[in-house]
Simulated scan of single mutants.
Amino acid sequence: MKVGVMAGYWGSHPPRRMEQTIAEAEALGVDSFWTAESYGSDALTPLAWWGARTSRIALGTSVCQISARTPTALAMAAQTIDHLSGGRLILGIGASGPQVVEGWYGQPYPRPLERTREYVAVMRAVWARAEPVTFEGKHFQLPYGGGTGLGKPLKSIVHPLRSDIPVYLGAEGPKNVALAAEIADGWTPLWFSPKTDEFYRAALAEGFAREGARRTAADFEVANVCWLSEDEDLERAAARLKPVVALYAGGMGANGANFHNDVFVRMGWGQECAEIQRLYLAGRADLAAQAVPTAMVEDVALVGPVDKICEEIVKRWKPTVLTTLILGGWPRPESRERILEAVRS
């Protein structure tokens, strides 16, 4: 199993010491470094800024939201970073949810799988650079069919360093996971739990079995962000992550349309999720966090003393479908090499 480190998206301000973290990660042989976006900081700018201070580590987005940019715009940004980094980009993309897509980007959300399929096809046509790009889809048309009528097919001026930049899909539901297996080079789960491994293996197998599937299980990557909170006191370690779990399970989406909530429900936390969501949507994020059981955090994160963390990596996480464990938290100096080795050994 490979190991990555997650910078994520920002809170109110840029994270501290990230330049030092990525330098330490590269020096210790960490395989990849990842950024994200929601509706504040973007994923590409920090990746390029921090990535410029590295020479080997792969640079991934987990994820770029497809409604934020046209497919040609993201293809341009991807091939630019890929050139500047010497071919180290992993382009993770995702559809996000209706609240962000329609509320923040002002774009329609319906039929996200169909839009994703078209989006990836357009990007790959840009990178292939075989001919001027034309596309007639339900969601994207190149050239645009309305307007002045003066649009013309164009071919990228830049010759991509790699004509086949790896694309990973961020997905949580089984249909979207199957789509990732069919059309992408990898899958980036969110809130993956080892206890749901068989469920996701079945969804991936469905995608691999489709006619024209791009990859097989043997050469497909699954890179999962796993939160990390070290502390000799388990409850104290879990308490640091309960507000994050409550935010996603309770507040990241509307009542009845929260895909993160659905993930935890599939793990068996339906009753708890209903209460967490009720409290969060009522404006009581503090009580919602208190309603998150420690065991629910342990399902999706590495929490507690370093001995426990390393044992769980080996016994619970490594036997799963995951190929890369992206640590959502940089281990303490005294336990850093031990945790990294537990993943890689």
Rank of each mutant, 00 (worst) to 15 (best):
310 C>T: 10
149 G>D: 11
118 E>H: 07
339 I>L: 12
316 R>W: 02
283 G>Y: 13
113 L>F: 02
80 T>N: 10
222 V>R: 05
338 R>T: 12
345 S>A: 12
259 F>G: 00
285 A>Y: 00
67 S>A: 11
199 F>T: 14
169 L>W: 07
323 T>Y: 15
141 Q>F: 01
79 Q>K: 06
146 G>K: 15
335 S>N: 14
290 Q>S: 14
312 E>F: 01
63 V>E: 03
118 E>A: 13
37 E>I: 00
57 I>L: 05
316 R>Y: 01
300 V>F: 02
52 A>E: 13
255 N>W: 02
316 R>E: 11
300 V>W: 00
36 A>F: 11
226 C>M: 11
315 K>I: 01
101 V>L: 06
202 A>T: 14
341 E>T: 15
191 W>E: 04
270 G>T: 03
178 A>E: 12
61 T>G: 13
114 E>V: 14
210 R>D: 06
286 D>I: 01
58 A>H: 09
147 G>S: 12
332 R>T: 15
341 E>S: 15
39 Y>F: 14
132 P>K: 07
240 R>Q: 14
58 A>D: 10
334 E>Y: 04
248 Y>P: 00
30 V>R: 14
216 T>W: 11
240 R>A: 13
180 A>E: 07
156 S>C: 05
22 I>P: 04
185 D>V: 03
155 K>P: 05
136 E>V: 13
32 S>F: 00
342 A>L: 09
155 K>Y: 02
293 P>R: 08
59 L>N: 03
37 E>V: 00
115 R>P: 04
165 I>G: 11
46 P>I: 03
219 D>W: 09
242 K>D: 10
162 R>P: 08
344 R>M: 09
310 C>H: 10
270 G>C: 09
207 G>Q: 15
336 R>E: 10
50 W>M: 14
89 L>D: 09
110 P>E: 05
163 S>H: 15
134 T>D: 07
111 R>T: 07
296 M>I: 04
196 T>D: 14
83 H>K: 10
192 F>H: 15
343 V>G: 06
251 G>L: 00
57 I>R: 05
171 A>P: 07
282 A>F: 02
288 A>M: 03
